[in-house]
Design a binder for these strands. Structure first.
Lengths: 219, 219
DNA sequence: ATATCATTCAATAGATTACTTGAGCGTAGC
DNA sequence: GCTACGCTCAAGTAATCTATTGAATGATAT
């Protein structure tokens, strides 16, 4: 094998794929989809040691999936361009269509996605313009603080039970979180429905919304 | 780590990515993009032992990237759905945009892709309708035999020098091969230009043409 | 049945990967 | 300057991956 130019290229592409070949690193990418993060903050969110997280980040960096900048004593990582979300989307899509295991997990834990009747960008925009829905961001407070959908109300999933009174039961709730496989919004919808409140999920999460060129609110 | 459902899903997605994490397997996928192949035939094309190729194919199968069927004593593998090409496309795209190494290989070996002025589907269709161009398939004879672009002439790259007389020097040649990184069409264009024949590459290869829903010719 | 061919399986050695631990380095604030 | 903090590096272990070899299926042909 004289390592033809084509194989050389494929070796580079394979290196990118290998960087995606670990569940924790995909998790990191999802979190970075919310916005820039420091290493420790990320490590805490995903439940890995700092050193381990740092090493994962460096693999992602070598593969061209993330980039970093220094801000004071923090080093902030972020996704490198919109292509990353596109690639992740293609990966998720293939998994959902081609792997029985993925389908099974979806059924078992997410009570079958289709039954959740996800709401599209377009529908949300339309209905929120008419003031018909409550847009609910169920991510943790700090993530909401950085960026959120326009007009959204933030009740982190953990606090949902104790803060139910803040939700107008006359309106439909549309919940969203980090991305299409983020559990938060699934569980929020389930909890709300159990209490008789009409609720649906937004099809995608914040990163996809932003990638679609739709407006977000910042402090 | 109690392995949340989200991480379980991400583990599945990561498994798909790991299956893409080897240059030979990407090469296999490109060849399967041309059409169904038996194990031995594939092994010969990509230059690996039969056993090794078989094992790579099984990894791809476990990851939901290929599927197989028995035909007599052959077991024929093929890509599992169009999502595979989409995923590969996203991967290539990210590599081209985000990795300096990829860009370097492109410059060194492919004489900078942009200078090659690739021709789009649309332009090819238009110009071949008017009879202005020779569509040249430079893949090996057996791949051409299985399927090719309508009206294309087949001269495998190895035979190009000896069969130059078959090409009308008055017409522009548009060459294509297996896919966007297949070397064959790059080299064919370079060789033709050196001999004063106007030549360009088709932007993509046969699989992308087929995936775009455009017609192909079969025996 | 036997022989043959295409493919897979099983066992192995060598390389790569994930995570931990503890040390090292740069920046901010005292 | 020193200390605290955020991050990276280096070394080590256990687990996983690649490619080779040779043996084992399974289907066809004689």
């Amino acid at each position: 094998m004289s390592t033809s130019p084509k194989l050389k290229l494929y070796e580079e592409f394979a290196a990118i794929a290998r960087a995606l070949g670990n569940a924790h690193r995909i998790d990191i990418l999802e979190h970075l989809g919310q916005g820039e993060r420091g290493v420790d903050a990320l490590a805490a969110k995903i439940g890995l040691s700092t050193a381990n997280t740092s090493q994962h980040l460096q693999q992602l960096k070598r593969a061209g999936l993330v980039e970093s900048r220094r801000d004071g004593k923090y080093i902030l990582y972020r996704l490198k361009g919109d292509n990353v979300l596109t690639l992740l989307g293609a990966l998720f899509d293939l998994g959902e269509h081609n792997l029985a295991e993925v389908d099974k997990v979806m059924r078992d834990y997410f009570h079958k996605r289709d039954d959740m009747e996800a709401v599209s960008h377009e529908e949300l925009l339309e209905r929120s313009r008419d003031g018909l829905v409550t847009v609910l961001d169920v991510r943790p407070k700090d993530e909401f603080a950085m960026e959120h959908l326009p007009g959204a109300k933030n009740i982190p999933l953990e606090e949902l039970e104790t803060r139910l009174s803040e939700i107008d039961p006359a309106q439909e709730v549309i919940a969203y979180c980090r991305g299409p496989y983020c559990v938060l919004s699934f569980e929020a919808v389930a909890a709300l429905r159990q209490r008789g409140i009409k609720a649906r999920r937004l099809e995608d999460g914040l990163p996809e919304w932003r990638a679609a060129g739709l407006p977000v609110e910042q402090p």
